[in-house]
Simulated scan of single mutants.
Amino acid sequence: MAIGKKALIIAGVLAVVIVAAVLALQNYPAQTPQSGAAQGKFRIVVNPGVAEKVSIKEAQELEKYLEDLMGMDVELSYPASSAALIEALRFGHADAALGPGALVGALAVSLANAELVAVEYREVIIDGKRETAPYYYSYFIVLKESPYVYIDELRGKRVCFPSETSVSGFIMPLKALADRGYITPGEVERPRDLALQFFGDVVFGGGYAQCWAALKEGKVDVTVMAGDVAASLYWEAMNNSRVLKWKDGGYAIAGPNPSHVVLVRGDLPEDVKTKFVNAIFALNNKPELMRNYVSAIFVRFERRDVNEHLKPLIDALDYLKIKEFYLR
């Protein structure tokens, strides 16, 4: 079919326009996302999962409280995942993060240039005593009537960990096993594979209570208990179990496990950062609200050095070579 002269002219004009547009896009400078703080709005991402626990009224109360203290518009957002929270800080879509767990905090500090400005002090049990602290410990336990005394005897046996993403219930216990030569860090498809170097079967129960139930019912031979669980669960488990020992005779304890954190973007202007930090410490006057936004055992926020609080966990992730898994 013959193509008319008019059609050829139109096609030629369109081609010129398209080429010009492509060239313009190639030469157009990349735009860096503008900080919310620079626009007079301070954007805070909160701990993933919080949206299910807080009411609209509580969210509005927190926004209003922070706005009054900071003298600027505050916007709270509720990311669907830990990765989304980290990316928001990394690419300037958020100015701060309120209450993420230690794992998210460690990844944000090491990969997103986030700065630790406050940590949670929480109600925990350490050495059988109630304490208010920014850390706690976890313990490898077996039932009281179990024949096992040393963790070496559990090689090839069944273990229950609360979750593959639990710092106190999995990551730090793995680090304790690696430190003593029971497992060898290396590139693995998932962290569970490291635990399988020593244990015969690895179960993720979904929580400490579920793992304790599995131990009582004989479904596993060993589990982990931590000092930040509900006191009733802690004492039921510890009064009816024994803490295993390492081969040197010391108790099989992992930690210290860091508490939740408050972060800001590394390039946040100092004056804005100061306003935010002051507002965070003012939230110590609203502990009930923070128990919804941070953790159920929240007591207060305090300052703590990042090397003291998060570096042991960052080092554990690097040593075990599992950091990338938690960014998926």
Rank of each mutant, 00 (worst) to 15 (best):
G4L: 01
K6Y: 11
G12S: 12
A21D: 13
P29T: 05
Q31W: 03
T32L: 06
Q34V: 14
R43M: 11
I44L: 05
N47I: 03
S55C: 05
E67W: 10
G71C: 14
G71D: 14
V74F: 02
P79S: 02
A80G: 02
L89T: 05
L89E: 00
A94Q: 05
D95Y: 00
G101D: 11
A102I: 07
L111H: 04
V119Y: 08
E120I: 01
Y121D: 08
I125H: 00
I126L: 07
A133Q: 04
S138T: 12
I141A: 00
L143Q: 06
C160N: 10
S163W: 13
S166H: 12
V167M: 09
S168I: 08
I171R: 13
R180E: 02
Y182A: 14
Y182N: 10
I183E: 04
F198E: 04
V203E: 12
F204D: 08
G206W: 07
A209C: 01
W212T: 01
A213S: 09
A230F: 06
S232V: 12
L233Y: 06
Y234D: 03
Y234I: 00
E236A: 00
N239D: 14
S241I: 00
R242I: 11
V243S: 06
A254E: 06
V261K: 06
V262N: 07
V262R: 03
L263P: 09
V272W: 10
K275R: 14
N292T: 10
H309Y: 13
L310A: 10
L320Y: 11
